[in-house]
Computed example of a mutant assay.
Amino acid sequence: MEFKNATILKKANVYFDGKVVSYTVKCEDGTTKTLGVMQAGDYTFNTGAAEVMEFLSGELSVELPNQKEPLVIQGEAMFEVPANSSFTLHVKTVATYCCAYAN
């Protein structure tokens, strides 16, 4: 994954007592993404805009809105989260991710 002509904000986004940390990337085409790392743990996130989550590594399961069974991830995977909803991650091993936000 590579972002050309992008601006990375230096200030980290820190959640859950530092167990989830990401950096904001503003792309030339106007899109915003975050690149981050999650330590093992359980995390619930609320969305304003729709999101596309791409996991690059790690072992976890995801409880998504309107899905009965959790999505199990081992390594790379991608999923979408609707706007104005929430999702819960059960991270078993350190996981890295890229999140893209709808404009």
Rank of each mutant, 00 (worst) to 15 (best):
V62L: 03
F87V: 07
N46E: 15
F87L: 12
S22Q: 02
E2T: 13
G36P: 07
E51V: 05
K10R: 15
K68H: 09
A12N: 12
P82A: 10
A100R: 09
S22A: 08
A77E: 11
A77M: 10
F87R: 02
L35T: 11
S22V: 01
S61C: 02
A6H: 11
D29S: 05
K92R: 15
V62R: 04
N13V: 04
E63P: 05
P70Q: 03
E80A: 13
C98W: 02
D42R: 11
F55I: 11
E63C: 07
L71N: 02
K10V: 14
P82C: 04
V91H: 01
V52H: 09
A49D: 11
G58D: 01
V25G: 00
F79Q: 00
Q67E: 06
T93I: 11
L9C: 04
T32P: 04
V20M: 01
I8W: 03
D17E: 07
V37H: 08
Y43S: 06
Y97M: 06
E80K: 13
T96P: 00
F79K: 01
S61M: 08
G36F: 08
V52L: 09
A102F: 09
T31E: 10
V37Y: 03
E76M: 10
Y43A: 04
N5G: 13
T93Y: 10
I73C: 09
K92C: 07
V25D: 02
L89Y: 00
V81S: 02
F16I: 00
L71V: 05
Y43V: 11
E76D: 12
T47I: 07
G30M: 01
E59R: 08
E80N: 14
V20P: 00
G48S: 15
V72F: 08
E2V: 12
N66Y: 10
C98S: 13
F55W: 12
G41E: 03
G18H: 09
P82I: 01
M38D: 02
F79W: 03
A95R: 01
A49Y: 11
A77G: 04
A95C: 09
N13H: 06
F45P: 01
C98R: 11
N46L: 11
L35Y: 13
N46R: 13
N13C: 06
N5I: 11
E51S: 10
N46P: 11
K10H: 13
T88D: 05
E80G: 13
C99L: 06
E59K: 14
L89R: 04
T31R: 11
T93W: 08
V52D: 03
K68T: 10
K26N: 14
N46S: 14
T34W: 00
D42L: 09
V72C: 09
S86P: 06
G18F: 05
T31C: 08
V62N: 08
G30E: 03
P65S: 06
Y23E: 08
V25Q: 03
V37N: 07
V20N: 00
Y97L: 07
K33P: 04
L35P: 00
F16C: 04
V72I: 12
E51F: 01
A49T: 14
T31S: 15
C27H: 13
C27M: 10
E51I: 05
T32H: 09
F16W: 04
S86N: 12
E59W: 02
T32G: 05
T93E: 05
T96C: 07
D29K: 06
N66G: 07
S22I: 04
T34S: 06
N103I: 14
M78K: 15
A12D: 15
K11S: 11
A40Y: 06
N13A: 08
L71T: 04
